[in-house]
Simulated scan of single mutants.
Amino acid sequence: MVSENQTVRRQVWGAYWASGRLHSCTNTPDRNYQGAIGDFWDGFFAATRKGARILDLATGNGALPLRVHRTLEGRVRVDAIDLAALSPAWYEPAKHTEIRFHAGIGMEELPFEDAMFDEVVSQFGFEYADRPRALSEALRVAAPGARLAFVMHHAESVLVDVGREELGHHAWLISEEGLLPAAQAIAPCLAAIRAGSAPSSAAFAARERYNRAMDELARRASVSKAPDLLLEARQHVHQIIATMGQDASSAISAIGRFIQDLEGSRLRTQEMVSHALTVSELDSLTEACERRRPGMRITSAELRQAEGVVAWSWVACAASDADQTG
Rank of each mutant, 00 (worst) to 15 (best):
R9D: 02
Q11D: 08
G20C: 01
R21M: 04
L22M: 08
H23K: 03
H23F: 04
P29G: 06
F40D: 01
A47I: 00
A58D: 04
T59K: 11
A63T: 04
L66Q: 15
V68S: 01
R70C: 08
T71E: 10
L72M: 08
R77H: 15
A80T: 13
L83G: 14
A84M: 01
A85Y: 05
S87Y: 14
A89C: 11
A89H: 15
W90V: 09
E92Q: 14
E92S: 13
P93D: 10
H96M: 12
H96I: 09
P111Y: 05
M116I: 02
V120Q: 01
Q123S: 13
F124C: 14
F126A: 14
E127G: 05
A134V: 06
A138E: 01
L139E: 07
G145F: 00
A146N: 00
V151K: 01
G163I: 03
W172C: 01
E176H: 11
E177V: 09
L179R: 09
A182I: 05
A183M: 12
P188Q: 15
R194M: 11
A195T: 05
A195D: 10
R207W: 09
Y210L: 06
A213V: 03
A213P: 01
L217N: 07
R219V: 07
R219K: 05
R220C: 03
V223P: 09
A233V: 14
H236E: 09
Q246I: 13
R257A: 10
F258R: 11
F258H: 10
R268V: 11
T269P: 02
Q270E: 13
M272H: 04
S274M: 11
L277T: 04
T278R: 07
T278K: 07
S280Q: 15
E281M: 12
L285I: 15
T286H: 10
E287V: 14
R297G: 00
Q305C: 05
S313H: 02
A316W: 00
A322H: 13
G326K: 10
